[in-house]
Design a protein around this nucleic acid. Sequence first.
RNA 1: GGUGGCGUGGGAGAGCGGCCGAAUCCAACAGCCUGCAAAGCUGUACAGCCCCCGGUUCAAAUCCGGGCGCCACCUCCA
Length: 457
Amino acid sequence: MLNLHDTATGSIRPIAPEGAPVVSMYVCGPTVYDLPHLGHGRYVLVWDIARRVLLATGHDVRFVSNITDIDDNIINRATEEGRSEAEVAAEFEERWFEALDALSVLRPTEVPHATAYVEEMVALIGRLMDRGVAYRTSDGVYLDVSAVGDYGLLAGQPLDQLRAGARIVTIDEKRSPLDFVLWKDAKDGEPSWDAPFGAGRPGWHTECVVMSLNLLGEGFDLHTGGQDLKFPHHENERAQAVADGKVFANHWAHSGWVMVGAEKMSKSLKNFTSLTDLLATHDARAYRLLCVQSHYRAPLEVTAETIAAAEAALLRLDNLARRLDVPELPAGPVVLASHGVDPDAVSAFVTALEDDLDTPRAFAQVATLVSAANTAADDGDLQGAQALAWTVAVLLGVLGIRLRATTDVDEDAAALAASRDAARAAKDWSEADRLRGALEALGYIVEDRGGATTLHR
RNA sequence: GGUGGCGUGGGAGAGCGGCCGAAUCCAACAGCCUGCAAAGCUGUACAGCCCCCGGUUCAAAUCCGGGCGCCACCUCCA
């Protein structure tokens, strides 16, 4: 079973009981008001890999990830652009999934939308008011966090300390600065829904409680997101569930930042690169490999240099596949038991991954197999080399990286390659070199394999 | 003020009590291979002790105490 660091306990522990037939995961999804950036890409890749590891080791996974399709940012953008909130949300949800598809991120098993769960949210808020733990102000309904005994569990500090450091300066009718909005009263020109406590729209923290409990049930296995969701978002989700008398997530895991220089990449610092831009100019697998090569909880430096290094590493992997004609793995998740690869290699690989998702260590295991496969091939042991290379392909497949052994070669290039082979056969080296130069000018990398020109990009 | 995290070779980044004079990837250099290359392989260099000081231990990069530096969170944020 996969073990992960649990924010609630501070320890590394299994995310589900060993024999669990289905592992349930809830990953906080995006608010769709802009293009996804590299930080989104990283957390999405991290949890995609966690899911793939579970699938690879024979577990079923129910993977729920929401779309926040109503919030201030969406409203602002819609207002600026003179179109509806629904249009803005629909556009950026589409862009979101385009990027994720490019990254080979498996689609969630369910994608709940906040706007489809307003009725349930209204019911939850009603119950919280009935219990006296939520109260009205002149602009909405708030949760009284003092009613939640262990508030601060995820933040790692008790309520009074959180309050002491609160940077919230607005003085309003809130009983505590940490009380948070469950329901925002309707304003002119903004989308709203009817509710017994007045028309309005839900606050951000309420949707995930309702959707996760609704789809996965009480006591679901794992709730994840980026570090910054730890507090207040996850704390506040949990607070509502506790105040409602529900058992919430059993395990909380959080992934680290993408850094630019020494700073967190974020919207507010305007130092972000959109995922869409990155994917337009680089192999999506390189970004996945870059993420794989660092631990998910550590900060990750993303620069032109680190991406280029990942691309170089990826090239080496594809070279192996090309050299040994490794068949391309089918799309979708890999189940290790069905591929008949070396059990020792699998065991070392899985051990690393199940130990707090140690992808760098797992990748290091694979890298040694790459060398072994090449060495076997150099020694003329084709069969042994191919078996090793296939193991490499399968293990990388678990991480969501599929090797490519082939490149589309257009007719012109194929003709040049044929001419070059003829020149080489005639030992006309200057002509052969001229043709190689021409092919390289077309963007191909030229390699001789068994006397024949081989091309790839 | 509080909380969490981080500090390992040129870069990235594992290891978290002995197998570590430190994995793996990228970059560099040399050799082999090649008509020449590329790919691949092999080797070398790069961490004289893994931020500093003190301690525990037969044994510490790994544990404890104290520093220093950096990042983040306590407001929206993945």
